[in-house]
Nucleic acid binder design. Structure first.
Lengths: 279, 279
DNA sequence: ACCACAAGATTGGATATCAATCAATAAATT
DNA sequence: AATTTATTGATTGATATCCAATCTTGTGGT
């Protein structure tokens, strides 16, 4: 463990990308200091790290809040993410060896299996992870860190908006990108990456008021104390009461459609309103 | 001014990219606290910001040092920079209006004029700035910040290596990139961006031992107190003794060659060993 | 010359304290 | 009564001091 402030920053980051701490939520120093049982200074250092990461914003003499990006900024984040992943795609199409392609295919297959098993939670995590694995294969740690930060910020965005998109097409995109890239059809792959992210952004509606808030104490409770038990990450275990306190954890219905173009205006078929899993 | 720690982080960043604080230099908390006349905690917060930015590295119970990237990391930084600028180039080729192209051309022209006047210092700064302006035209603040961070890190790298490259060809690249992009020859422009950065990295030799060190107190003296007077930035004033204490500030001789290919192996014509200006 | 141990220095953090600012209430005025 | 003003309280930014853990150094003994 490097420093305590780093650990706290990690926990806060976790809570934010888990949507337990929602945008606009006040992150009071004294409150967090009590929760984590550290001094205010350590909390402040953690908040500085979060702010540098774009997940929090600090207003002078007013304190820190979970970042609440504007629609403009949301678009910019997705544009940046698209740019990075397209660039990585171009590099991979040149340099990636058979083992790399195999890893990507393996990952897609795992996700497909999870979907087939109806394990939505795992499928979601794998869907997120695909992008991380994709960039990792570039073997560029600097790029990885930039990309990971962008992914964190998109994850934050998702607790600010009500997503409404075709889940299955997004899932297939991963497989198709790998196919196109391995066949050397770089241009098409890059276009698909663009479409992939646009199809996520398109469903964003940002004027929605934020969900029932949790106080930081409630939100952070699962991460404190023992060994982070009860924190649901990529464990597919289905505890009756998982993360969210609200009961809209509607069973996701995944309908597998034949690939069809997704024109910017037509969005009227097989959409599921869901939270926390557009990848 | 937001917070004091941010101001100090900015000053340290400045000193690092000015090559006054060289890689490996110890950044003691107590020492910096005295220099800036603040408490150690504020210094620590500034160092955390620097570390997040990749300009410093903090080792537990050992303190902070100016980052000393490995050759591997240097390559990764340049790869990332290339990726970002290529992506921005692709966006600009679609979306940039006449005013944007004009601004780029104006900037190139200013740099050309500076070279013609023999004002190397100004030419250097403008060369650096070109990349910043280029990315700014994408109108994506998120991307701008990522790019700016990468540029800072490349600037840091330059105090770690001895560059040895053809200065004039690098200068012309900017103009050629603009030409190619405006003509819609995106592929060639992206290749040129790649070549541009590679031609910088190629000259890097990282085993060189670091220059005569300054203590942080000496290095930071010009930034402290008054209004940063005496800090040489884009002022073309030619003080006899500029930044560096070592006397190798040889007069740069800029020979304008007809464009020629720069094969990875052939580097035997019109190269000037200089410091701090490959852009 | 080499290893072990003690002394010193530095970092990471805790606590207490203070000034400045913001928020919200209570009071005063129109 | 409504609005404006003043007071109070809470929170942040920052300092000083203190303490424990760890790293470095230097000395001494073998």
């Amino acid at each position: 463990m490097s420093s305590r402030s780093q650990a706290i920053a990690d926990t806060l980051t976790r809570a934010i990308i888990d949507h337990r701490l929602v945008p606009g939520c006040k992150l009071g120093e004294r409150e967090l200091a009590e929760i984590f049982d550290v001094s205010r200074i350590v909390v402040r250092q953690a908040l500085i790290r979060l702010a540098d990461d774009g997940l929090a914003q600090i207003e002078r003499n007013r304190g820190a809040f979970v970042a609440k990006p504007s629609m403009q900024e949301a678009m910019e984040i997705y544009d940046a993410l698209t740019l990075v992943e397209q660039g990585v795609a171009a590099q991979l199409s040149d340099r990636l060896g058979p083992a790399g392609w195999a890893e990507l295919r393996h990952h897609v297959e795992r996700q497909r299996q999870a979907v087939a098993d109806g394990n939505d939670a795992l499928a979601d995590v794998l869907g997120q992870e695909f992008h991380i694995v994709f960039v990792r294969l570039s073997r560029n740690k600097v790029m990885q860190e930039i990309h990971a930060q962008l992914v964190r910020r998109t994850t934050l965005l998702r607790s600010l908006i009500s997503a409404d998109f075709d889940y299955c097409n997004l899932l297939d995109d991963h497989s198709r990108v790998v196919d196109l890239l391995e066949k050397g059809r770089l241009k098409q792959a890059m276009d698909l990456i663009d479409t992939h992210h646009r199809s996520v952004v398109r469903g964003y509606i940002m004027d929605r008021e934020v969900f029932p808030e949790m106080t930081p104490a409630e939100a952070l409770a699962p991460y404190i104390g023992g060994k982070m038990d009860g924190v649901p990450t990529l464990v597919p275990s289905r505890k009756p009461e998982k993360i969210s306190g609200n009961g809209d954890g509607a069973a996701h219905v995944h309908v597998h459609l034949p690939k069809q173009d997704r024109a910017p205006t037509s969005r009227a078929s097989t959409k599921k309103t869901n939270r926390g899993l557009p990848t």
